[in-house]
Simulated scan of single mutants.
Amino acid sequence: MVFVEPVTLADRGVELRPMSLEHEAGLRAAAADGELWNIRVTSVPEPEQTRKYIEDALAMREAGNRFAWVAVEAATGRVIGSSSYHDIVPALKRVEIGWTWYAKSVQRSHVNTTCKLLLMTHAFETLGCHVVGWRTDNFNFASQAAIERLGAKKDGVLRGHALRRDGTIRDTVMYSLRAGEWPEVKAQLLHSLNKPRG
């Protein structure tokens, strides 16, 4: 049995659709919005690597350890980013959320919070996960702050853990949220999304 079934998740004008090769042009355009592949501490594909990025994600999905979505603006169908479950461990009912990036034009909007809410709700309330994890580069301070704003707890740092795209070796900061903490985190995320924006 597959732990993560293909499903489209939607809320607040944003849809998370299972990634497929038909999203190649949309993902390339989203990454070009801000030339995101130039950011040293992210996983955004260079334009010519977009197809391989999708093929790799689909191979990992086939292997059962990653499920990738594209974030889409529901009203227009425009691809605005991507996020995944990865390091999926069905026996532990654990997933991590990562490979997340958004077009520059939708950063600092409701999009990231909405996508995280959708992915966390699906993990805890549909898949019955006991824990959801995150990992990020020790120099990706924006990502660490965003994960901490979600209410996740810092588990620690894995030193000398992974290669960056430039060939340097990074330390990885690990975070997690347990099922018992989810109701309070969900309430806070909904509160922040429902606040009027000035």
Rank of each mutant, 00 (worst) to 15 (best):
T121S: 11
M120P: 03
M1A: 15
H122R: 11
T114C: 05
D11T: 00
L193D: 07
M120R: 13
L163H: 14
A152I: 11
G160E: 14
V79K: 06
T50A: 09
L27E: 03
K186P: 08
L118W: 05
A32C: 07
A123I: 07
W99L: 02
E184Y: 02
M19P: 04
A91I: 04
A145T: 13
T76L: 10
E22Q: 05
R108N: 09
P90L: 08
R17P: 05
Y102G: 01
E62A: 05
W182F: 12
N112D: 01
V157E: 07
H86A: 05
V111T: 13
R78E: 10
D137V: 02
H122F: 13
L16F: 00
E24V: 01
P196S: 03
A75N: 05
H122C: 08
R94F: 10
T76G: 11
E184N: 11
K186H: 13
V106W: 00
L16D: 04
V2E: 12
H86S: 05
M19S: 03
Q107P: 12
V2A: 10
M60R: 15
A142L: 12
R108T: 06
D166A: 11
V173F: 07
V106Q: 01
T126F: 02
C115T: 13
D155S: 12
P45W: 04
L21Q: 06
T136S: 13
R94P: 00
Q144V: 06
L193T: 07
G133T: 14
G180Q: 13
L119K: 03
E62C: 02
V95K: 06
F3K: 09
T114V: 11
Y53V: 00
T50R: 04
K153T: 11
G156R: 13
T136I: 09
E181Y: 10
T114P: 03
L27D: 01
Q49R: 12
G198D: 14
R40H: 03
R170C: 06
A152R: 09
A179D: 15
A103M: 08
M120C: 14
G133D: 08
P18L: 13
V70H: 02
Q49L: 02
L158Q: 14
F141V: 07
V41W: 15
S192F: 07
G77E: 11
A63T: 00
A71K: 04
E35S: 09
A31Y: 04
A123T: 08
G180Y: 00
N194F: 00
G26T: 05
Y102S: 03
S43G: 00
L193C: 09
G167L: 10
K104A: 05
P6M: 10
C129P: 12
L189A: 13
T126L: 10
V185F: 09
S20W: 03
W99A: 06
Y53W: 12
S43F: 02
L36Q: 02
N65T: 09
K154N: 08
R94D: 03
V185P: 04
Q49D: 07
G26Y: 08
R165F: 01
G156N: 12
R17E: 01
K154T: 08
V79C: 09
G98T: 04
P45C: 03
G180R: 14
V79N: 03
F124D: 06
L9S: 05
A75C: 05
S20T: 12
L118I: 05
L92D: 12
Y175H: 15
R61N: 09
Q107I: 07
K104C: 00
L21W: 01
S105N: 06
T136M: 09
N112T: 06
A57S: 15
D166Q: 12
L92C: 12
R28S: 10
S192K: 14
A162S: 13
I39L: 10
